[in-house]
Amino acid sequence: MQDREICAGVIERLLGIKVGKIKYPKLQKVIAPYYSTHGVRLDVYVENSTTVFDVEIQTTPVAALGKRMRYYQSMIDIDHLTQGNPYDVLKESYVLFLCKKVPYKEKRSVYKFERTSEGISAGDNSHWIVYNLEQSKEESDASLRAFMEYVGSGNSTENDALVERIAHTVEKLKRNELFRDEYRAMNLHDYDKLSQGRAQGRKEGIALGRQEGIAQGLQKGMAQGRQEGILMTARGLIEIGLSLEQITKVTGLSLEQVTALKDKK
């Protein structure tokens, strides 16, 4: 969900509206306005100039779902107000829960909750929507049905461009995870080889000078190989759309180094 186009496409698919240009999606955004408060971690948090969207994916039953949506809504509002904003500039907000299990007796594919009284809106511009993934096949909108089926099962019976793009991106991420695992394993293997070389060098003290030269050459070569591996990892993470800050955390490269790699693409 860090790809802006995919993220915008998902939200448009869920809501049936155009969201326009969005800011960079934030994954696992934490809101804890005060030290003593019970904070909240939002799965996917997205904004544009007028609206904020929170998308939550729940694979296990959610206790007190209604109260959780209420709390998430309040924390999003507080987050905006602590930035010095008055009430009247609070953005329109959508809290969207995609759930495999819902607590409601009446089985629907989508539940929409608004604050109204006898047809009169409270005017708070907040919307809570729950998508029941178990009932995705009952959804009448084919594009929404395809997306809900994919989120619920990892597959979809519909031919849908957005779902196919998401599936392709997920596969790239999986392959990149495998590459990182193999890269870590390679580093451990190289470390073992280096340790063995050092032990051998100590045992053969009569050739200390020659062994030190070999060890230095080995260290230099291994360091170069590790650096090339790190750069390869960084290029792969740039390709799949991770942010520069996330890439620096994963690889240990500086922000300037990652920026230079991105500019070369």
Rank of each mutant, 00 (worst) to 15 (best):
D124E: 10
A122H: 08
R184W: 14
R41Q: 06
R4C: 02
I206E: 10
I206K: 13
A64S: 13
I206C: 11
F97H: 01
Y150A: 03
G123D: 09
V30A: 09
L27K: 09
M148K: 01
G66T: 13
N187E: 09
N125T: 02
P25K: 03
S153T: 15
S140K: 14
V52R: 01
Q246Y: 08
V40H: 00
L218E: 15
P61Y: 06
Y183P: 02
I230G: 00
F97E: 02
E12Q: 08
E204R: 15
S74N: 10
W128V: 05
P61F: 08
P86M: 06
R202M: 14
H38P: 04
V250D: 06
S36H: 14
K112H: 12
G252P: 03
L133N: 01
Q200P: 02
L42H: 00
T259I: 06
S121H: 11
K249I: 08
T251E: 08
R70T: 10
L237K: 00
E5G: 10
V89D: 10
S49H: 12
L96P: 01
H189E: 12
H127D: 06
E164W: 04
C7T: 11
K91T: 01
K174F: 05
M186V: 04
F97C: 00
R41I: 11
M232G: 15
D54L: 04
D190R: 08
L218T: 10
R210D: 15
E239G: 08
M75A: 07
V95G: 00
N48C: 03
V30Q: 08
L231V: 14
L162N: 00
A260E: 13
L27D: 05
K220N: 13
K23C: 12
E239V: 11
V19S: 02
G229E: 03
P25S: 07
T60Q: 10
K29G: 04
R165K: 13
S254H: 04
T50P: 06
L42M: 07
Y104H: 06
E92N: 03
A63H: 13
R226E: 15
T82A: 10
L14E: 01
G154F: 04
I11E: 00
K265H: 14
T259R: 07
C7M: 10
V163R: 03
H168C: 12
Q246R: 11
P86H: 07
N85F: 10
Y111T: 00
T51W: 06
D192R: 13
P33F: 03
E164I: 02
T251H: 06
E5T: 14
G16N: 11
T233C: 14
K249V: 11
I214P: 01
A146G: 04
Y35W: 09
Q28V: 03
L188D: 05
D141G: 05
L261W: 04
T157W: 09
A260S: 14
G39E: 07
Y150N: 03
K264R: 15
G123E: 08
A32T: 08
L261C: 14
I31Q: 11
M232E: 15
A63C: 07
V130N: 00
Q28W: 08
G39R: 04
G209C: 12
S153E: 09
G9S: 07
P86Y: 03
S136T: 05
M148W: 03
T233S: 15
G9K: 01
Y72T: 03
N159W: 06
V163G: 02
F97A: 02
A167R: 02
E239N: 15
T116E: 13
S49I: 12
E256V: 15
Y191Q: 13
V130I: 10
S136A: 15
Q227I: 09
F179A: 07
D77V: 00
